[in-house]
Simulated assay, not measured.
Amino acid sequence: MSILVTGGAGYIGSHTVLSLLEQGYEVVVLDNHSNSSFESLRRVKILTGCDITYYEGDVSNRLLLQNIFSENDIKQVIHFAGLKSVSESVQSPLKYYDNNVMASIVLIQEMIAHNVCELIFSSSATVYGIPESVPLNEDSKIGGTTNPYGTSKLMVEQILRDTAKAYPQLDITILRYFNPAGAHPSGLIGEDPSGVPCNLVPYISQVAVGKLPKLLVYGNDYPTHDGTGVRDYIHVMDLAEGHIAALKHKMAESNCRTYNLGTGKGYSVLDLISAFERQSGKIIPYQFVERRIGDVAECWANPSLSQQALNWTASRSLDDMMRDSWNWQQKNPTGYE
């Protein structure tokens, strides 16, 4: 039996595929490479020595999904595939609703048609909108999202909850990620954004390696310990291991469960810069600019439910994230090219 991983060549997807293979799972990957590279899967095979069944295409391609489910003995699905740029989603909302919401509906329909019942969905802390208080737990208020990307994740979560009620044979786990960072310690796989990075850590890394002149820090007047925004950064390998823990957790009181995957610690932009400078020996030039619309002062997780229910805890530190990010960037100054 195999696990279908949609978006398995992407940043989080490739690290999770590696962890799955190391745990002895058979993996089938579907990816359209809109923001990923097949090279990541080639390197995963180098690291693990394991073969990956691979399909190139889109999750919205119903015929392709039917072929995948017919040609493979799929037991579980991990659904990463989707667009993830907050700023792009503001400019192209219909593109995001089509890719993230409509494609997910097609996937769920084909899973039901082929009697594939177990699904792990890649959601996001953006579903909490502007937090009423921190840390955030799974019962915190959701909604009031500040961009179409976050709204698309919120919509799919609701679709999954409604579908789970209608189809009791389904076993659905929703994982809300906070801020993934870092790379595999080998430096062979990591985050490879196309164009100017949307996420903070790859932006810092590209400044350090000379691809970008300086880091723009959006706002230094937030009510935080140094005036810059505070977020919960989690090592991508901890995140990958969270998916393994979720796979092993069997259906209990509900057939649709939600867990935060975070560290429970908040770090500011300046905290990240300092940690990166410690690990890289590089000075990161930066400039304060105006706040971005929709950004919040603080956002971090209460991960106690995932610790109790999944027996999972993020174990890697901020310094680990920065060290592994720099190792990846040094070894791959132009990414997977």
Score class of each variant (00 low, 15 high):
25 Y>Q: 09
113 A>H: 03
5 V>Y: 06
187 G>S: 13
206 Q>F: 08
183 A>N: 11
19 S>N: 06
185 P>C: 05
209 V>C: 12
72 N>R: 11
91 Q>R: 15
54 Y>M: 10
128 Y>N: 11
33 H>G: 03
12 I>Y: 05
228 T>R: 05
199 N>M: 13
125 A>Y: 10
148 P>A: 02
65 L>H: 07
107 L>N: 04
170 L>D: 00
34 S>Q: 10
73 D>Y: 07
284 I>K: 01
307 Q>A: 01
333 P>F: 02
4 L>C: 08
322 M>K: 14
205 S>W: 03
195 G>T: 12
238 D>R: 02
166 A>L: 05
274 S>T: 11
28 V>N: 04
263 T>Y: 01
195 G>K: 09
34 S>R: 04
247 L>K: 01
180 P>H: 05
156 V>W: 00
98 D>C: 00
17 V>K: 06
175 L>S: 00
258 T>E: 09
236 V>E: 04
316 R>W: 01
158 Q>P: 00
146 T>Y: 10
334 T>K: 06
296 V>W: 12
185 P>D: 08
213 P>H: 07
225 H>Y: 12
85 S>P: 15
52 I>L: 09
190 G>H: 14
164 A>W: 00
52 I>S: 09
203 Y>D: 15
229 G>K: 09
153 K>H: 06
8 G>S: 06
219 G>A: 05
176 R>Q: 08
2 S>D: 12
169 Q>P: 03
329 Q>M: 15
274 S>E: 14
142 I>T: 15
203 Y>P: 15
155 M>N: 15
313 T>Q: 02
251 M>N: 10
337 E>Q: 13
294 G>Y: 06
85 S>T: 13
251 M>V: 14
31 D>A: 07
197 P>R: 12
302 N>P: 12
296 V>K: 13
141 K>F: 11
129 G>Q: 10
188 L>S: 14
132 E>H: 03
183 A>V: 11
219 G>V: 03
250 K>E: 10
254 S>V: 03
173 T>Y: 03
10 G>S: 07
120 I>M: 00
172 I>T: 07
147 N>C: 14
36 S>I: 04
180 P>E: 09
30 L>S: 05
302 N>T: 08
311 N>G: 00
219 G>R: 00
59 V>D: 02
325 S>Y: 10
211 K>E: 15
304 S>D: 06
78 I>F: 03
111 M>A: 02
297 A>N: 06
299 C>S: 15
118 E>F: 00
224 T>S: 13
283 I>E: 12
255 N>Q: 06
53 T>G: 09
169 Q>F: 05
171 D>L: 01
32 N>P: 09
195 G>S: 11
127 V>F: 02
133 S>T: 15
273 I>W: 00
139 D>T: 05
159 I>F: 00
184 H>V: 04
284 I>Q: 03
251 M>E: 00
77 V>N: 04
147 N>Y: 12
222 Y>Q: 07
19 S>A: 12
168 P>G: 07
28 V>H: 03
192 D>S: 14
205 S>V: 09
60 S>H: 10
151 T>N: 14
103 A>C: 07
6 T>R: 07
300 W>K: 12
214 K>H: 06
145 T>D: 12
128 Y>C: 09
37 S>G: 09
268 S>K: 05
322 M>T: 15
202 P>L: 05
7 G>W: 01
70 S>M: 04
84 K>M: 15
318 L>G: 06
178 F>H: 10
38 F>M: 12
116 V>A: 01
176 R>N: 10
227 G>P: 11
291 R>M: 08
